[in-house]
């Protein structure tokens, strides 16, 4: 009974927080304090959060090193643009098709490649990402290497916000469910998990498909904000960018992924003025963080109200900790 009350309280608090955050930003955009420049970075932030959180499900929680995330993003981007720009369907259809197409690709790729482990899987997924890019470059329907331009801007703040919240809620709940425990058991010890009767292939593919679907969502949002999509955007460097966020935040920490995505976006925007040395400073900061926090900013911990209480002398809480 006590527990149930606490859960409800927590839920209501979270909803209030989210609504407040949404309204605040919406207000700032309406009155013009957040101009186009800030809006662009806000959008990039949201898209990066979706990408990092979804890749974290595959790399962090399932422990399968995938380097093809940009490929799924590309599929989502092009699938949604084909629906909206070329075939004139509404944006929501574009998003749904994007997610389905990316999930399907995740399934097709996942089934054969997830038998591989470690380096081999990394190489297979890397190759897959490149294949998608090269194939897209040679399809005339999608404009070949120049891609498709003239995409209407439909990724507004409400759309972006809902997408980010849905992504995090779905992935966090998945991890906290029995599916999630099975997925984590695969990461911890695949043989032991198998012995315990867990169908490891099934859970690996599941994580892969869900991760891919959300990468597709990110691709759709990306395409409908930046006016033009071209295959070159989704090269393997893009996959590495996402991987950097996941590793920086801490493999296996959703809050870590979110924070790292925000951190990287802000860092990138901040360094814009130092054009010449930008990439050097960027790399240096990453190296320094990795030297002092090799497990990532948050390791595999989550940041919650509990951890805040712990810092601000919440002695009564610490007793409930493990």
């Amino acid at each position: 009974m006590q527990d149930k009350k606490r859960t409800w309280g927590k839920f209501i608090l979270e909803v209030i927080f989210l609504v407040a955050l949404f309204t605040l930003v919406q207000y700032l955009i309406t009155v013009g304090i957040l101009n186009r420049y800030y809006q662009i970075n806000l959008t990039l932030m949201g898209i990066n959060i979706i990408l990092a959180v979804s890749l974290n499900l595959i790399n962090g929680f399932t422990g399968q090193l995938s380097l093809g995330h940009a490929g799924f993003m590309a599929i989502g981007a092009f699938a949604s643009v084909i629906m909206t720009t070329l075939l004139d369907y509404p944006f929501i259809i574009g998003i749904i098709i994007a997610m389905l197409a990316a999930a399907l690709a995740g399934f097709i790729i996942g089934v054969p490649t997830l038998r591989l482990k470690g380096d081999y899987l990394a190489i297979a997924t890397l190759g897959f990402g490149e294949i998608i890019r090269v194939v897209l470059q040679n399809i005339d329907y999608t404009g070949g290497p120049a891609g498709i331009s003239g995409i209407a801007k439909m990724t507004t703040w409400p759309v972006l916000f809902i997408a980010v919240v849905v992504t995090i809620v779905v992935i966090v709940n998945m991890i906290n469910s029995s599916y999630g425990r099975a997925i984590i058991s695969v990461r911890e010890d695949e043989v032991a998990a198998e012995v315990m009767g867990i169908n490891t292939t099934k859970y690996k593919v599941l994580a892969f498909v869900v991760g891919a679907a959300f990468a597709g969502l990110a691709g759709a949002l990306y395409a409908h904000y930046f006016y033009i999509v071209k295959p070159e955007t989704f090269n393997f460097l893009k996959s590495f960018d996402i991987l950097v966020m996941v590793v920086l935040g801490g493999l296996g920490s959703t809050t870590g992924a979110v924070i790292a995505a925000i951190f990287i976006t802000v860092l990138n925007a901040f360094l814009q003025e130092y054009a010449a040395v930008r990439m050097i400073i960027y790399a240096l900061i990453l190296i320094i963080v990795m030297i002092y926090r090799p497990q990532g900013l948050l390791g595999n911990k989550e940041l919650s109200r509990k951890s805040f209480n712990r810092i601000w002398g919440g002695k009564h809480v610490s007793s409930t900790n493990k």
Binding site: N35, F226, Y227, T233, A276, R278
Partner: peptide
């Protein structure tokens, strides 16, 4: 400013410069 050879960054930089 550096747009990193990326289309999204080119837009981002232009918005910053306009600002």
């Amino acid at each position: 400013r550096d747009c990193q050879s990326k289309t999204d960054e080119a837009m981002n930089v232009s918005a910053a410069l306009a600002d």
